[in-house]
Nucleic acid binder design. Sequence first.
DNA 1: CGGTCGGTTGAAAGCCTTCAAACGGTGTGG
DNA 2: CCACACCGTTTGAAGGCTTTCAACCGACCG
Lengths: 247, 247
Amino acid sequence: MVPYPSNSSALEIFIQRLSAHSRLGSEEQDALLRLPVTLMRYPAHVDIVRQGTITDHACLVSEGLVGRYGQTADGKRQFLSLHLPGEMVDLPSVVAPQATSAINALAPSTVMKVPHAALREASDRYPAIAAAFWRDCVLDAAIVAQWLLNVGRRDARARTAHLVCELAVRSRNVSAAARDQFSLPITQEQMGDALGLTPVHVNRILKGLREEGLMTLARGRVVIEDWRGLTTAAEFDGAYLNGLGAI
Amino acid sequence: MVPYPSNSSALEIFIQRLSAHSRLGSEEQDALLRLPVTLMRYPAHVDIVRQGTITDHACLVSEGLVGRYGQTADGKRQFLSLHLPGEMVDLPSVVAPQATSAINALAPSTVMKVPHAALREASDRYPAIAAAFWRDCVLDAAIVAQWLLNVGRRDARARTAHLVCELAVRSRNVSAAARDQFSLPITQEQMGDALGLTPVHVNRILKGLREEGLMTLARGRVVIEDWRGLTTAAEFDGAYLNGLGAI
DNA sequence: CGGTCGGTTGAAAGCCTTCAAACGGTGTGG
DNA sequence: CCACACCGTTTGAAGGCTTTCAACCGACCG
């Protein structure tokens, strides 16, 4: 068995993530822990939310890998974000229920559905929670902005390395796992959809990174052999993942 | 003189933009109108905020054109957003004062600086304002996400057309100007930095669009000759600009 | 009037895509 | 238990979109 976090801990990880940028008292934390949730299971490649749908709940990843994506008219797909267990996929939906992008399970995943009503209640009652939610949306947006820089201005090798570095750091934020090895149940095609590349080219790039002794991605697991080298190849600076300058 | 909105109206446009997705009572609107602001002028190509800086104010564009951007290690630049007069460039900074991206004046611009303290005060006092700010950040993020799809999955022609369509719609939201003609004081190099293209290629694409009779960009002004054709070339669907499904 | 900036155009090179085919692992049905 | 199908990975070859390099032009400004 892969050491997924247990179901109940997804909320705890979420709270811990919020605490990384916002001060939450024990009262607020309790309120969040008492959030009513419904567990749902999804097979790989299945949409959890379709674009344009109006939802009444947000999705917290508990196991697996979940992403938001947009699509062009001719069906080409672009992932806009990826979410590891413990991360909220669509907190923005609390304040904008009409989905501007679709949500998809990249691997078999279990998702905790949290009603918007409960989230609004919590944020109405506790201003600190409202601020933390707002801030979390801002952090999310900062990551998307980095992806835009990545896709717009880095070549395929740096781009791929950058994504792996980001997910390595986020994975460590989320679980106590070592940064040089973490679960990433993603196919090369999905990776291409996250990087704006074809699956064929992703394959060649990964081969290159492997042969350079930088990293390996196999059977849903990333092994980083040379963190220093990988961050250099990626021009990676993780400041955007933490440094919001907030309390 | 180009018919820029007068200085005092930038705040009004901002309020009107907020009202498009959030219900604000007259009391809230008054509070926003009373926000203390400082007017600043910037020449073209000058940075208003540098990356990593911690700021104590947000920037509301009054005249000109302002954008956020990120940079790779070797100096390649990627605009992450563009902001027309009446739009707030960095509302997220209220809640995350450390700038994860730089802010630049693409053309000679005047900017209203609004202290974070005043914005926080207003949003603390009026929950409707807090919700509107949050929602505005979410809308902003939805636009960045569309750019990511655009840069990641559309070819240069569609990509360029898409940007112009988006700005045309946003320009109309912001002023009463007709959609088929609006001010866009941007160079082809800056456009390349927004689209993940070289200035040379932007030039060729614009030439193509001009020869197809779709649009013209000259001397800081876009003239759309065939809106239908342009949206088709761009696969443009403006739903993401408005449809948040919020009140 | 020279200098700078932005726009325009041509030619060659390069990164990535497209098209095709083969391989390995896994699950299912005979 | 094996055959087969399916999915994801891997590799080769050709083509194309975009970049790079270079040069020239026009407008604006000091």
